[in-house]
């Protein structure tokens, strides 16, 4: 469960996120969409506790992220668009390190099936430098899933993946959501929203333009027309410009 109330993020005089409030329940997948510079990544980074919000409250799995960040972070996982890995740690060593950070007892019992599910078990002793972009992404996912998070944030999860990798990533997100995880993802790819997201939140210049289920948002911007594509909905909602 994610509860966001009055989230504001300022960089000096520039306000990147303005008074944002929304709730995502277990099993829901919320897609954050908007033109470039809309504040999607900033919002995700605030929700994941990477950057402090200027104002507002964020509750992750019932824990206040500002008051008790350690407890809140135990329940979440953040997957950046570019997998950030440690150059000197093999796949297996990455999992051992993350297990110790999160205190995952007997992590080998969890890690092995996870590596097999993500099809990188045969790369367990390789360094990130020896892995392809897709394999690195899988390793980052394995690290994020090791502590069984109930809340997940994906920033542009399909970046750099091949068609098979895209299919697997979508399946993986849906699988976790069906298992009861709360998922928020940001993407420019509207087909990803159609296939994976149950809810959508459209941002423009840091402000919420619309949110709700895909059907609700589509109905709001369809102006009574039938068969309006999601792309058209997005363009109508955002005014067709970045500014």
């Amino acid at each position: 469960m994610i509860e966001v109330t009055g989230l504001i993020k300022r960089y000096g005089a520039f306000t990147a996120v303005k008074e944002l409030s929304f709730t995502v329940r277990p099993g829901e997948v919320l897609g954050l969409v908007g033109p470039n510079g809309a504040g999607k990544t900033t919002t995700l980074r605030c929700l994941a506790g990477i950057i402090p919000a200027t104002a507002g409250t964020i509750h992750i799995a019932g824990q206040d992220l500002t008051a008790d960040p350690v407890a809140a972070k135990r329940s979440l996982a953040f997957f950046p668009d570019e997998p950030r890995l440690f150059d000197y740690l093999t796949v297996r060593q990455h999992l051992a390190f993350v297990a110790r950070i999160y205190g995952v007892a007997h992590h080998e019992d969890i890690a092995q099936p996870l590596l097999e599910e993500l099809e990188i078990a045969d790369k367990a002793d390789q360094l990130p430098g020896e892995l392809s972009r897709g394999m690195k992404q899988k390793l980052a996912i394995a690290c994020g899933l090791l502590h069984a998070p109930s809340v997940m944030f994906f920033d542009e999860p399909l970046t750099g993946l091949d068609p098979l990798g895209i299919r697997r990533m979508k399946d993986s997100i849906l699988k976790r959501a069906r298992a009861g995880a709360t998922v928020v993802l940001s993407s420019h790819l509207l087909h990803l929203l159609e296939e994976v997201c149950s809810h959508v939140l459209i941002l423009k210049k840091g402000e919420k333009i619309a949110d709700g289920t895909l059907a609700d948002v589509s109905a709001r911007f369809a102006n009574g027309e039938a068969n309006v594509s999601l792309e058209e909905i997005f363009i109508r909602a955002t005014g067709g410009t970045e500014s």
Binding site: A48, I50, P80, R84, Y102
Partner: peptide, 8 residues
């Protein structure tokens, strides 16, 4: 970014 997501 990754270090900051750790529960520490």
């Amino acid at each position: 970014d990754i270090l900051k997501t750790y529960p520490l």
